[in-house]
Simulated scan of single mutants.
Amino acid sequence: MPDTETSAAEMAAHRANNTVPTDAEMAAFNKMIIDDFRANNGKVTVDPFKGAPLVLVHHVGAKSGKERIAPLAYDIDGDNVIIIASKGGTPENPAWFHNLVANPDTKIELGPDVIEVTAEPLTEGEERARLYQQMADKMPNFHEYQKNTDRLIPVVVLHRK
């Protein structure tokens, strides 16, 4: 398992310097978060996500067909789990978003539970705006991410099956 202090420090340095981590740095960081999530029954105990509401979203590569897992912040709306495809406010959507568009039937790990879901991307409209606002009001970094990009950041509704 990667050194949690090093991984967290590397990510903090990227945020402070407004730089993008390498693919290898992101993979190591995500593995650390996923391992911690699973070791602690769905709770994250390491910075910078200590205590944050995180869900593990399984997704299948649109081109590769490989299964991947993304640890993401989430919110609940009724019976649905809501995630935001912010990628920190970069100009492009995250790879997991494209994968869920191509392969919407998947599963998530929410706390200790594995739940089958269908992903519904919302790229415009009142429902997208409402859900984005709801989550950003709880996690203000999402307000900042939208300010940092010209794209309208999509919301993904994960409907339980």
Results as ranks from 00 to 15, higher is better:
residue 1 M to A: 14
residue 1 M to N: 08
residue 1 M to I: 04
residue 2 P to R: 14
residue 3 D to T: 10
residue 4 T to N: 12
residue 5 E to L: 13
residue 7 S to I: 10
residue 9 A to W: 07
residue 12 A to W: 10
residue 12 A to L: 06
residue 14 H to Y: 05
residue 15 R to L: 10
residue 17 N to K: 12
residue 17 N to G: 10
residue 17 N to A: 15
residue 18 N to P: 04
residue 19 T to L: 05
residue 21 P to V: 05
residue 21 P to R: 01
residue 22 T to N: 06
residue 22 T to C: 06
residue 23 D to L: 02
residue 25 E to V: 13
residue 27 A to H: 00
residue 29 F to V: 06
residue 30 N to H: 10
residue 33 I to P: 07
residue 35 D to E: 15
residue 35 D to S: 14
residue 35 D to G: 11
residue 36 D to G: 11
residue 37 F to G: 06
residue 38 R to E: 07
residue 39 A to F: 14
residue 40 N to Q: 08
residue 41 N to D: 15
residue 43 K to N: 12
residue 43 K to T: 11
residue 46 V to F: 11
residue 46 V to S: 09
residue 49 F to Q: 02
residue 49 F to I: 00
residue 50 K to F: 04
residue 52 A to Q: 04
residue 53 P to A: 09
residue 55 V to R: 00
residue 57 V to H: 12
residue 59 H to E: 13
residue 59 H to M: 14
residue 60 V to N: 08
residue 63 K to G: 10
residue 64 S to I: 11
residue 65 G to D: 12
residue 67 E to V: 00
residue 67 E to C: 05
residue 70 A to N: 15
residue 71 P to R: 08
residue 71 P to M: 07
residue 73 A to C: 06
residue 74 Y to K: 05
residue 81 V to L: 09
residue 82 I to G: 10
residue 85 A to K: 01
residue 86 S to F: 08
residue 86 S to W: 04
residue 87 K to D: 00
residue 88 G to A: 01
residue 89 G to A: 00
residue 90 T to M: 13
residue 92 E to I: 12
residue 94 P to L: 13
residue 95 A to G: 03
residue 95 A to C: 09
residue 96 W to E: 11
residue 96 W to I: 06
residue 98 H to L: 10
residue 98 H to I: 12
residue 98 H to D: 14
residue 100 L to K: 07
residue 100 L to G: 12
residue 104 P to N: 12
residue 106 T to G: 08
residue 106 T to E: 09
residue 106 T to I: 08
residue 106 T to V: 07
residue 106 T to P: 05
residue 107 K to D: 13
residue 108 I to Q: 04
residue 110 L to I: 02
residue 110 L to M: 05
residue 112 P to T: 05
residue 112 P to D: 01
residue 113 D to K: 01
residue 114 V to S: 09
residue 114 V to G: 02
residue 117 V to T: 09
residue 120 E to F: 04
residue 121 P to L: 04
residue 122 L to A: 00
residue 123 T to C: 00
residue 125 G to R: 03
residue 125 G to P: 03
residue 131 L to T: 00
residue 131 L to S: 03
residue 131 L to A: 00
residue 132 Y to L: 00
residue 132 Y to D: 03
residue 132 Y to C: 02
residue 133 Q to L: 05
residue 133 Q to Y: 00
residue 134 Q to H: 15
residue 135 M to A: 13
residue 135 M to E: 05
residue 137 D to Q: 06
residue 138 K to N: 08
residue 141 N to L: 10
residue 142 F to M: 09
residue 143 H to S: 01
residue 144 E to N: 10
residue 144 E to P: 00
residue 145 Y to H: 13
residue 147 K to W: 08
residue 149 T to M: 02
residue 149 T to Q: 09
residue 150 D to W: 09
residue 150 D to G: 14
residue 150 D to I: 07
residue 152 L to H: 11
residue 153 I to D: 08
residue 157 V to S: 10
residue 160 R to N: 07
residue 160 R to P: 11
residue 160 R to I: 05
residue 160 R to D: 02
